[in-house]
């Protein structure tokens, strides 16, 4: 079981000769040319300040409106990771994913013969820190496909009926998990650790300053979509879905400042110390 290091002490790595890098992999949506906006510079700069060499990071910007296996999705992600690994000599890569980005990296980890670049990528990865991954899909995707979008506040998650939304329907994800992806119960384990951070609730009280981290309007919209989910959810994903693949690293209330929950919007932002935990993990 991995532990979260909350102190700011210097971590002495047993692999001091390794060249450590970090990759940020966004979630659903077409973020070509806008990878940094997905995470914000504040979040990225905070996390990479934990690197021995702060320049050794890459922010992926691909079209994740597509099925995960498409060239525009997994192919584009492989381009970023492979070029980063080879050009920077990275042999200790920490991949940080959000939401559907966890599925796309799982595609690469699960299908090593799909693309000759995949084994190089897999062998360079130390582990994946999967923030609120949509490993089991979400009933919101089913509803979005069977109707239209929910709210403008979740348009970044559930745009018009894209293939990525289609793919994240619950029964579809079970199909992909059972046939194409590794890491879920009863399936072979992934070749590297897939450590999930699980968001358990959404707070959007207008008088609560915590509700404003990440943007009040986004959190308010996720409070509405929670009606579609179980009592443990981050407004987009049920907890069971987030922890279906890999191993739980921690639940938000265990390590976030003040025991705050992370909504699906907040798990990609510098909210409640998440960025510091990820920084200390490098």
């Amino acid at each position: 079981m991995r532990k979260v290091v909350l102190s700011l002490g210097i971590l002495v790595s047993s692999v001091t000769w390794a060249v450590t890098g970090v990759a940020f992999v966004h979630g659903t949506g077409d973020h070509r040319g806008a990878g940094v906006e997905y995470w914000t510079s504040e979040f990225i700069n905070s996390v990479v300040s934990g690197l021995p060499d702060r320049s050794k990071y890459v922010v992926v910007a691909c079209d994740f409106t597509q099925y995960m296996w498409k060239d525009a999705a997994a192919g584009c992600l492989a381009n970023y990771l492979y070029n980063f690994i080879v050009s920077q000599g990275i042999d200790d890569l920490v991949v940080i994913t959000h939401s559907n980005g966890g599925n796309v990296i799982r595609w690469i980890l699960s299908n090593p013969t799909w693309d000759p670049r995949y084994p190089t990528i897999i062998n360079a990865i130390r582990w994946v820190n999967a923030l609120a991954p949509s490993s089991g899909g979400t009933p919101l995707a089913d509803a979005a496909i069977n109707g239209t979008v929910f709210e403008q506040g979740v348009a970044w998650l559930l745009g018009y009926k894209t293939d990525a939304v289609r793919q994240q329907q619950v029964s579809w994800m079970q199909y992909y998990n059972n046939n194409w992806l590794k890491g879920t119960p009863g399936r072979p384990s992934l070749p590297v650790g897939f450590w999930t951070v699980v968001g358990t609730d959404v707070e959007s009280a207008i008088w609560d300053p915590d509700s404003y981290c990440g943007g009040y309007q986004y959190n308010a919209a996720l409070e509405v979509t929670q009606e579609w989910l179980t009592s443990c959810s981050d407004g987009f994903l049920d907890c069971w879905s987030q922890k279906l693949a890999g191993s739980v690293w921690f639940y938000d209330y265990q390590y976030m400042a003040g025991g705050e929950p992370l909504s699906h919007q907040q798990s990609r932002r510098a909210c409640f110390g998440l960025d510091v935990i990820l920084r200390n993990d490098l």
């Binding site: 109707g147 239209t148 979008v149 929910f150 709210e151 403008q152 506040g153 308010a220 919209a221 509405v224 009606e227």
Partner: peptide
């Protein structure tokens, strides 16, 4: 009404 946006494409109610 659960939906909090006036210009929502979908109306959600309880």
């Amino acid at each position: 009404t659960l939906s909090q946006e006036e210009a929502s494409l979908t109306s959600i109610f309880k």
